[in-house]
């Protein structure tokens, strides 16, 4: 396992891009379903170009926070800024522009089942931009190759793909418009260890080559150690820590200690 720092060379940031800029800023957010508070006064920041791992107990609301940031779940209180813009204060046109700047890989892939893989990747291009069919084909095939899918998968329907291939195809669709920010929800769940490791290095490679910022909800300790720059821990209805994984080992919180020093977590200590 390689530490995040000694990876391959990374793409220089965009002209005028600031490495310290916060791509996501979640401030004082409260989300509740009925009378049940999922989060209370939650804060989180994600910096440009980093891979943030987001962990928490099953059912603690990891996916809910991602869906809140994506405006799929309404929040009761607080502000969320993407690329420095308050998502609630944006007029609809700008909000649509903002949508094109991030890509989402859902847990089950969420490919459109009646379209082929290639058509799935082309949906965002077709809907948002007026491109020639030739260019769309070329770009979609390039993305397909970037996520490591064979050419033969291009004309298959999602029902004909394996779980790992569905995730890769979903990732290719999320990357269709060259987003700056990528949300991935449990990318390695349901993959075999080899496939999971390949997916991890794929995401890391994409960050290095395309300059993505990655928000990764995960349960996979391997992913946390091998690709994440920082790990945010959701516990007690808020983010209790957002630190590089080595610092979390000594963090004083019962759940964090159990998570990283439990039976499974202990195996990684000393290796990384």
């Amino acid at each position: 396992m390689t530490a995040p720092s000694d990876g391959p060379r990374r793409i220089p940031p965009t002209e005028g891009g600031n490495a310290d800029e916060n791509v996501i800023e979640v401030h004082d957010v409260t989300v509740s379903f009925g009378t049940f508070n999922v989060f209370k006064n939650l804060d989180l920041e994600v910096k440009r170009g980093e891979i943030l791992g987001f962990v928490g107990a099953s059912g603690a609301g990891k996916s809910v926070l991602m869906r809140t940031i994506l405006e799929l779940v309404p929040k009761q209180h607080g502000t969320i800024r993407l690329f420095g813009k308050d998502i609630d204060a944006l007029p609809p046109a700008e909000s649509a522009e903002l949508n094109k700047r991030y890509g989402v890989l859902f847990q089950m892939g969420a490919l459109f089942s009646s379209l082929t893989v290639l058509e799935n990747i082309q949906v965002p291009m077709r809907e948002n931009h007026n491109m020639s069919p030739r260019l769309m084909d070329e770009l979609a095939l390039m993305k397909l190759d970037m996520v490591g899918l064979a050419r033969s998968a291009a004309n298959k329907l999602p029902s004909e793909l394996s779980g790992g291939m569905i995730k890769r195809a979903g990732l290719a669709r999320a990357l269709a418009l060259d987003p700056e920010l990528l949300f991935v929800d449990e990318p390695t769940s349901g993959l075999d260890p080899i496939g999971a490791a390949a997916f991890d290095s794929l995401i890391k490679g994409l960050r290095d080559t395309l300059g993505l910022t990655v928000y990764m909800v995960t349960h996979d300790l391997d992913s946390l150690y091998s690709v994440c720059d920082r790990v945010a821990v959701l516990a007690d209805k808020r983010v209790v820590a957002a630190e590089p994984v080595q610092k979390l080992l000594d963090f004083d919180h019962p759940w964090v200690r159990e998570y990283f020093r439990g039976v499974r977590g202990r195996r990684f200590i000393g290796h990384a």
Binding site: I11, P12, P13, D137, E138, L141, M142, A154, L210
Partner: peptide
């Protein structure tokens, strides 16, 4: 070529799609 663009061009070299 700006460094960033050079990087992207190199990356594309690795992922050239065959024509359909």
């Amino acid at each position: 070529v700006s460094p960033r663009l050079q990087f992207l061009l190199d990356e594309i070299e690795n992922h050239i799609p065959e024509p359909l």
